[in-house]
Design a protein around this nucleic acid. Structure first.
Lengths: 346, 346
DNA sequence: GTGAAAGCGCTAACAA
DNA sequence: TTGTTAGCGCTTTCAC
């Protein structure tokens, strides 16, 4: 109230005194634990309300839980993440858990480690790591300390659960769509990856695999053309520049992410070509960017809210039973055709 | 290591034993506090490293600080916020403070209150509230509990610091730009606001005021035309639909935010008009959306990273001295003209 | 069903 | 400079 004069917090002791019971009893009511009669419960609840009591999560954490779930986001700019967060918070709405998010630092393994440690040190009851770039051993190290769900990364582990969209299927949807329109020279822009561990687990690598498989399935194995840059707008720009320098231009470019596609569009625009008349462009993630009318990008929808909801459910499950076998959820993506894809020029 | 067998945390006691000193000494070293010889310091640091000790923030918080700063974001989808976060984390990089973000729940006062309470209960050392919609009294209630900086909201208080861009000047930049191109019928889309408190403090309202003032200053007082919807894409769409139904069409629409402008573009597109030939459109915030080549939206840049950096500095300052007088920082915006604005049709 | 008392990991008075 | 000793607000045995 008074500037600087922070009035002392109402504690469990105040509540106990007010309700004329012990602090133990108050604690039991707080946790909905066994061992308090309905009458006592009511009395304590009333006292809590009258005093405006709110439990101090940090103190609870010293013995029990903090009722906090940490979500590490690799890149807060990626418009795909809000969907996941929405699904997450929606699924957690009627629980006592609060979600706090930490900026992981775009593709920076060290920053990611700092963030995960910071969350562990702050007593998170559970953690959700979205598309982490950390090594598998680091992920297992995190999972050993606190229940963990990995989102958007393939590869299974006994120590954590995971939720991801089926990127092989997603890539096949794009290639199928383009091939169906009559395209043969379909190029792909990938995120460069050297680490063998991650090569097998990261979405980008799996999408590239899916692209290869699908091209082969459509009898276009000879047309496979992958440029590796990064999953950023600049990466897309750079990749497209390389593709536009090819002696035989591709008639379609499948970008591994919507942001990448935005860079592609820029490069194509600068080259004086038009989309989709001269060249088709497809993205991935069906972010809000893709839906913008002036953009209207064909993309693959990963059902982000469902991913988030599944992650929340798995996490609560594991917080309740840390010993249970790990689970992997794989969700089917869908294609969202828009105005950037059309039949190739005749 | 073993599944379920979380090996006990290394504590200050272990470090003390290993270094053959008292826990007090370890604590002093940890806090860089006065009262430990260089030799002792080195010994303790070595022990910490050898044991892989990491302080447990929640426990520190029970007596001292948690070294955690909570940032409440009203809408994680708004692409303006990442810039603020970048400025914030950059400014905090070399400190011991960690940033955790909480989703505030788009324009929902209750959700906002839940989030701020949750952060206080989790022992945040300081809080940064970005464009909060809460009542002034709630903001002061938060500030009474923990050092607080309010970002993106006008109006000053003795109990908290604030950082905002000069929205009057920003609106004047847009109107000046459009008037300079020869426009007279410049309409504005605003975020509807009824609460008198917030009417004076929220950015949207101030932008509308700035629009009115600037129109008058350019001798266009008679052309003032404001449509009030919401600061969302749908709001922009709706607002534009209303404006396009006017007997005399506006030749330019100044949307109060980039996302709003995206909705405007959609409505204009559907009406079969082209931008900027038939109608000019300007946004506000210069988000990454505006820069996208297919969008290329004229907008006002608020220097989000600077806003974030200032907020961080003010907060650290106030954590160090809670009694100091409150400060208000106002930053000058700049205009970024792009392809959606041009002279009006002849 | 209820409560006394110990303790979670750390910081802060106060002595030595 | 160093260590002893109380707590911080809550949960958890373990008696009653």
């Amino acid at each position: 109230m008074e500037p600087g004069g922070q009035s002392r917090r109402v504690t469990i002791v105040d509540v106990a005194r007010h309700a004329e019971v012990s602090t133990t009893t108050v604690s039991k009511v707080l946790r909905n634990a066994y061992g308090a009669s309905p009458a006592t419960r009511a009395k304590v609840r009333k006292a809590m309300a009258e005093l405006g009591y709110r439990p101090y999560a940090a103190a609870r954490g010293m013995r029990g839980q903090t009722y906090t779930i940490g979500v590490m986001l690799p890149d807060i700019r990626n418009p795909f993440f809000p969907d996941i967060i929405d699904g997450l918070t929606e699924a957690l709405r009627d629980t006592d858990y609060q979600v706090l998010m930490g900026p992981g630092g775009c593709n920076d393994e060290q920053a990611e480690a700092r963030m995960t440690e910071a969350m562990i040190d702050r007593g998170m009851d559970g953690m959700i790591l979205v598309a982490p770039v950390s090594s598998r051993s680091h992920l297992e190290h995190v999972a050993a300390a606190v229940p963990t769900v990995i989102v958007g990364r393939h590869g299974r582990s006994a120590s954590y659960d995971s939720v991801a969209a089926d990127d092989i299927a997603g890539a096949a949807l794009v290639v199928g769509h383009l091939a169906g329109l009559g395209h043969r020279r379909i190029a792909h822009i990938d995120h460069a990856e050297t680490d063998p561990d991650r090569l097998a687990e990261m979405s980008n690598a799996v999408r590239a695999d899916g692209y290869r498989e699908a091209m082969a399935a459509h009898g276009l194995a000879d047309e496979i053309d992958i440029v590796s840059t990064t999953y950023t707008q600049e990466g897309g720009y750079l990749g497209a520049r390389l593709l536009l320098d090819r002696p035989r231009l591709p008639t379609a470019i499948f970008a591994g992410a919507d942001v990448v596609a935005m860079g592609v569009i820029q490069a194509v625009d600068e080259a004086g070509l038009s989309i989709p008349q001269d060249i088709s462009v497809a993205g991935y993630d069906n972010t809000s960017l893709a839906a913008l009318v002036p953009v209207s990008l064909t993309s693959v929808d990963q059902a982000g809210t469902h991913i988030g909801a599944h992650a929340a459910r798995l996490l609560l499950d594991r917080i309740a039973d840390r010993g249970r076998p790990s689970a992997q959820v794989k969700l089917a993506p869908t294609l969202v055709p828009r105005r950037t894809t059309a039949p190739p020029p005749a």
